[in-house]
Nucleic acid binder design. Sequence first.
DNA 1: GAACGTCGTGAGAGCGCTCTCACGGTGTGA
DNA 2: TCACACCGTGAGAGCGCTCTCACGACGTTC
Lengths: 334, 334
Amino acid sequence: MPAKRLPTLEDVAARAGVSRATASRVVNMDPRVGSAAREAVQTAVTELGYRPNRNARSLVRPEPDSIAVVVPEAEDRVFTDPFFASLLASITQSLADSPVQVLLAMGQPGNSLKIERYLRGGYTDGAIVVSHHRDDHIWQVLTETRLPAVYVGRPYVGDVGIPYVDVNNHAGGRLAAEHLVTAGRRCIGTITGAMDMAAGEDRLAGWRQGLHEAGLPDDLVEHGDFSSESGAQAVARLLARQPELDGLFVASDLMAVAAIHELQGRGIRVPEDVAVVGFDDSQAAQLTRPPLTTLQNPVAQMATTAVSMLMGLLEEQPASSVVLETELVHRASA
Amino acid sequence: MPAKRLPTLEDVAARAGVSRATASRVVNMDPRVGSAAREAVQTAVTELGYRPNRNARSLVRPEPDSIAVVVPEAEDRVFTDPFFASLLASITQSLADSPVQVLLAMGQPGNSLKIERYLRGGYTDGAIVVSHHRDDHIWQVLTETRLPAVYVGRPYVGDVGIPYVDVNNHAGGRLAAEHLVTAGRRCIGTITGAMDMAAGEDRLAGWRQGLHEAGLPDDLVEHGDFSSESGAQAVARLLARQPELDGLFVASDLMAVAAIHELQGRGIRVPEDVAVVGFDDSQAAQLTRPPLTTLQNPVAQMATTAVSMLMGLLEEQPASSVVLETELVHRASA
DNA sequence: GAACGTCGTGAGAGCGCTCTCACGGTGTGA
DNA sequence: TCACACCGTGAGAGCGCTCTCACGACGTTC
């Protein structure tokens, strides 16, 4: 069986009895085409089921037509964690009016080979990379191939010559600590995020500084990895170490909600017995009982900033990194 | 300023002192290249930051390289509704090992123009379309352009010549009704999904049949649209109409969870006063209190089926629609 | 009636790449 | 020593499209 060849512009032109150039004009809505020719071409297009070959077009007219959103995390995680979900939603939304398409590339953190191959492969004109782990080498690929790129969340390894947008995680951790101290808590613990990510480290460092300034010990630390389960497990370890716990900063709402569930399951009241501060101000923060006191993570703003930075890069305008401020959202949990 | 030209294979070849053909062989890992030439080319590639031009390559070697997942729903909805989220996760996962890229196209249900333009534009080699509303004309575009496509969820308008994967929504509705009847409930209502979607209609029709067979009235119907808020509002209307309500089938878990919240907020106990059956068996079904009795929606299976159907279509193998069965998952809410 | 636009159209180059074909050099067997 | 296979390499065609340029057919103007 001969491979079914898709109709080309040449076929359309032949059927309409015009030249390929004229057919191209009709398809591209060039106004200077006679109405007879125009109609003939349009008919031929629908009759043949003609679809322009994007590759051929882009080859001639090299305009950026897709950017990749790269999330080096497992697929289910990406769609489950409200941080990623709302970030992706915001990114797509800010590109909704542009002709640029969004390509979603995900993959296990350890196995970024597929992603690297993809970025090297020239599939895309630019990349927004979300969530950088210490052992990711994606930034090297980006640098080597000079692919226009922006990070959301400062890369763990520091300045790699690729601009980023981030929230001030350090200030957030410190605000959380201060709030708990002001509320009269004296035995304050924390559940960190993933420690191979800047967000995890910075929030912890900020919290430490806050406690340090209040003259309180800062060693009640258990590590999570931003996932729900890790939050529940970490709070259990924390309680085992220190039953007197009366204040808790959790580095993400997702973990905080799980931690609160765990506390309540053990008959520990929030905020009466343990005051809990989260991070992200996700939708869940409002729905949980009690509503979660948390730090605002300006996800939508990070998304639009990242997008406009990248669009700038595509037009050769240099971009510099941006760090957005965060605020404490005071609700009932602390 | 002259537009910065990206390095081409020609540039790489020149720098490496070989012909374009040899450079191409190295880039494509063709084994029959001498090691001297190979190394020279590899050096030139990194020095120039060469990325192959996908368009040029695909022009010559026309292999499918991307499929679009089209969801004619608002962006935030797509990432918030666990049905879409897990479907998308599963689709991406089933394509993880294939070189095919996933393109995510979303958009307000009313405004499918951008999506239509996109499908017509030849950006993609195939499409998986999720969630069809009555007024969507996407299927017409697909038919006209003969773009290989698969629906997840039977299109509202019936057979449009495009194969689909779906769950047996009718059977699900009926199972829900039967379960409530068997549990001794006599005043049974339902909150429907969007009535311009086949899933909404079929689940209602199945529920009706179940009640009809039990000799019970089937007019206690309030319409939702699958969103959380609509679930809460619909249950309020239902209670206003019929305070005696003692059984409830809600066409999605997301709405069911909201409905239960609303009921509990009014001091109505679940399942003692009102037994509730959901649909989807999403993760939330297990976490809510009480855990939700619901109908299993084999999302992962639908995803893999849709993907393999589409991959088949890309290789010119015809595909026929598949309807998967559903089962009641018995938990505490009914 | 000549000179000059304007408008619709076609011919043809060329985008960056892959792949076929041809060719010279080297190794192997008779 | 010659015939042949084989291997690494280069020349060149051509993928489907856009876009420039040229050209003929008409007005329009003086």
